[in-house]
Amino acid sequence: QVALSRTQVCGILREELFQGDAFHQSDTHIFIIMGASGDLAKKKIYPTIWWLFRDGLLPENTFIVGYARSRLTVADIRKQSEPFFKATPEEKLKLEDFFARNSYVAGQYDDAASYQRLNSHMNALHLGSQANRLFYLALPPTVYEAVTKNIHESCMSQIGWNRIIVEKPFGRDLQSSDRLSNHISSLFREDQIYRIDHYLGKEMVQNLMVLRFANRIFGPIWNRDNIACVILTFKEPFGTEGRGGYFDEFGIIRDVMQNHLLQMLCLVAMEKPASTNSDDVRDEKVKVLKCISEVQANNVVLGQYVGNPDGEGEATKGYLDDPTVPRGSTTATFAAVVLYVENERWDGVPFILRCGKALNERKAEVRLQFHDVAGDIFHQQCKRNELVIRVQPNEAVYTKMMTKKPGMFFNPEESELDLTYGNRYKNVKLPDAYERLILDVFCGSQMHFVRSDELREAWRIFTPLLHQIELEKPKPIPYIYGSRGPTEADELMKRVGFQYEGTYKWVNPHKL
């Protein structure tokens, strides 16, 4: 086992960053958080920038500027975001240094004079007029057009580079997404736009490419001749908990499936790229999406959770019991969808996408189930092999396979070949997804960000279904809070070829 401390991990990262040409360590950078008073800024962006600063992973002359409508001070920003920093008493001095680099400007999102004030403020910072500028839009999409237009007109660096990070949702359907994309691309070049999907920053999602293309053993079996089906799962054990009003506007397909799960599907299904260059990788992902037809209604199961009468606390409440959810809402909190990649490698292999709230566990994984062994000599005792990439929690890679049961006879039983990170790298604290992705933006690497043509294809696949749901308002199937979801989803999976045995229990190697 390799035991690495946080300091050692960050030392390795620093070495990698400083050796590259793309990370300008000594240049002045300004990180501007648009929507600095909001939840995302408070819980994710400010803490992430602090962790990067604490670990010495930001360029040395980096300033952080918050911008929002609320009249706040840096002290206010500190008060609301610091509880999420997880700072230790030993880091007190470092924390003071961090907040000394912070400033805040209040202004409207659609007022040109406010942006001119913001620009004057940035120019007044040390070497601010020639600094590289990175704008993070932690804002609702309704203000994107006004904000990007004003940034472009008043706040661009004339000497350094300018980059803009856009948070999902990128529209509600193909038409609104196209409108937003066309607007942003009329102001910024594609190499300046970073559409963030934080799932692409997760260690195991990034590991998929290495697993596939750096190991000879997987190449020959990664196709329709050997793989019976692919299941991509995202499960949350909690409901909307008072935030249903926002969720109800989008629903589970827009929230998770059309982005996170579809991105994971691309990494499983794509061909080997010409290189690890950002556009070479994204070219292959677009090719996969172009091979997927629009979702067919007979390959869809929609569910909505109801309270568990035997549960406790939140578990007793259904989705419609959330006071922020519109009365009688038919918005799905669970969806199972089957897609097919219609190309030579994957023809006929079902890709089953499942996601839901208020389920029995927290889990995100990719599961490849292989065909049955031909010419069975073990009297149907063999179960199908599976390769599982567990994204969260407890990152893991393992192969479910058959071995001989101890004893006199040739009785096979299920076991696993474990390729888990935790076994080799004991207690290594890896940077989280937002840390990686923000560092990628500083480096100018777009590999783990969504390109406009990729986004367009993703919406093309799901828009007809979303429009049909909005028009017909089908009643989702009720499922109990804390269950596996509607049984109809299991029946759909069985119908397209997935075999669920229920006889195997994964042993978490992190707890051995």
Rank of each mutant, 00 (worst) to 15 (best):
Asp255Ala: 15
Val256Phe: 12
Gln258Ile: 15
Asn259Tyr: 12
His260Pro: 15
Leu262Trp: 04
Gln263Phe: 10
Gln263Ala: 14
Leu265Arg: 01
Leu265Val: 09
Cys266Phe: 02
Val268Phe: 12
Val268Gln: 00
Glu271Cys: 05
Lys272Asp: 03
Lys272His: 11
Ala274Trp: 12
Thr276Met: 08
Thr276Ile: 05
Ser278Phe: 07
Ser278Asp: 13
Ser278His: 14
Ser278Thr: 07
Asp279Glu: 14
Val281Trp: 14
Val281Gln: 06
Glu284Ile: 01
Lys285Ala: 13
Val288Trp: 02
Leu289Ser: 02
Ser293Thr: 10
Ser293Cys: 06
Glu294Lys: 05
Val295Lys: 02
Asn298Leu: 11
Asn299Lys: 05
Val300Gly: 03
Val301Tyr: 03
Val301Met: 02
Leu302Asp: 01
Gly303Asn: 02
Tyr305Phe: 12
Tyr305Met: 01
Val306Glu: 06
Val306Cys: 12
Gly307Lys: 10
Pro309Tyr: 15
Asp310Gln: 07
Asp310Ala: 08
Glu312Thr: 06
Glu314Ile: 11
Thr316Asp: 07
Lys317Gln: 10
Lys317Ser: 13
Leu320Thr: 03
Leu320His: 13
Asp321Gly: 05
Asp321Arg: 05
Pro323Val: 11
Val325Glu: 03
Val325Met: 06
Arg327Gln: 09
Thr330Arg: 09
Thr333Ala: 01
Phe334Ser: 11
Ala335Asp: 02
Val337Trp: 03
Leu339Thr: 13
Leu339Phe: 11
Val341Pro: 02
Glu342Val: 05
Glu342Asn: 11
Glu342Phe: 05
Asn343Thr: 04
Asn343Lys: 03
Asn343Phe: 02
Arg345Leu: 10
Arg345His: 10
Asp347Lys: 13
Val349Ser: 02
Pro350Asp: 01
Leu353Cys: 07
Arg354Gly: 02
Cys355Ser: 09
Lys357Val: 07
Lys357Pro: 02
Ala358Glu: 01
Leu359His: 05
Leu359Phe: 00
Asn360Trp: 00
Asn360Cys: 08
Asn360Lys: 09
Arg362Pro: 12
Lys363Arg: 05
Ala364Lys: 05
Glu365Lys: 01
Glu365Val: 04
Val366Ser: 01
Leu368Glu: 01
Phe370Cys: 03
His371Gln: 13
His371Trp: 04
Val373Leu: 14
Gly375Glu: 12
Ile377Val: 14
Phe378Trp: 09
Phe378Gln: 02
Phe378Ala: 02
Gln381Cys: 13
Cys382Gln: 12
Arg384Asn: 13
Glu386Arg: 01
Glu386Asp: 06
Arg390Val: 08
Arg390Gln: 13
Val391Ala: 15
Val391Asn: 13
Glu395Ile: 08
Glu395Asp: 15
Ala396Leu: 14
Ala396Ile: 14
Thr399Gly: 13
Thr399Trp: 14
Met401Thr: 04
Met401Lys: 03
Lys405Ala: 15
Lys405Cys: 14
Pro406Thr: 15
Gly407Tyr: 06
Gly407Thr: 12
Phe410Ser: 06
Pro412Cys: 15
Ser415Lys: 15
Ser415Arg: 14
Glu416Ser: 08
Leu417Arg: 14
Tyr421Lys: 05
Tyr425Glu: 15
Lys426Trp: 12
Lys426Val: 13
Asn427His: 11
Val428Ala: 10
Asp432Glu: 12
Asp432Arg: 14
Ala433Glu: 15
Ala433Cys: 15
Ala433Pro: 13
Ala433His: 14
Glu435Asp: 06
Arg436Pro: 13
Arg436Ser: 14
Arg436Asp: 15
Leu437Ser: 15
Leu437Gly: 15
Ile438Tyr: 11
Leu439Met: 06
Asp440Gly: 04
Val441Thr: 08
Val441Ala: 10
Phe442His: 02
Phe442Thr: 07
Cys443Tyr: 08
His448Ala: 15
Val450Asn: 06
Val450Pro: 11
Arg451Cys: 09
Arg451His: 13
Glu454Tyr: 10
Leu455Lys: 03
Leu455His: 03
Leu455Arg: 02
Leu455Ile: 04
Ala458Met: 14
Ala458Thr: 15
Thr463Met: 11
Thr463Asp: 13
Thr463Cys: 09
Pro464Trp: 03
Leu465Tyr: 14
Ile469Glu: 06
Glu470Trp: 05
Glu472Cys: 11
Lys473Phe: 09
Lys475Leu: 14
Ile477Glu: 03
Tyr479Arg: 02
Ile480Ala: 12
Gly482Phe: 01
Ser483Ile: 01
Arg484Thr: 13
Thr487Asn: 11
Thr487Glu: 13
Glu491Ile: 05
Leu492Gln: 07
Leu492Val: 07
Arg495Ala: 11
Arg495Glu: 08
Val496Thr: 11
Val496Lys: 12
Val496Gln: 09
Val496Phe: 10
Gly502Thr: 12
Thr503Tyr: 11
Tyr504Cys: 12
Tyr504Phe: 15
Tyr504Ala: 15
Trp506Pro: 15
Asn508Val: 12
His510Ala: 09
His510Ser: 07
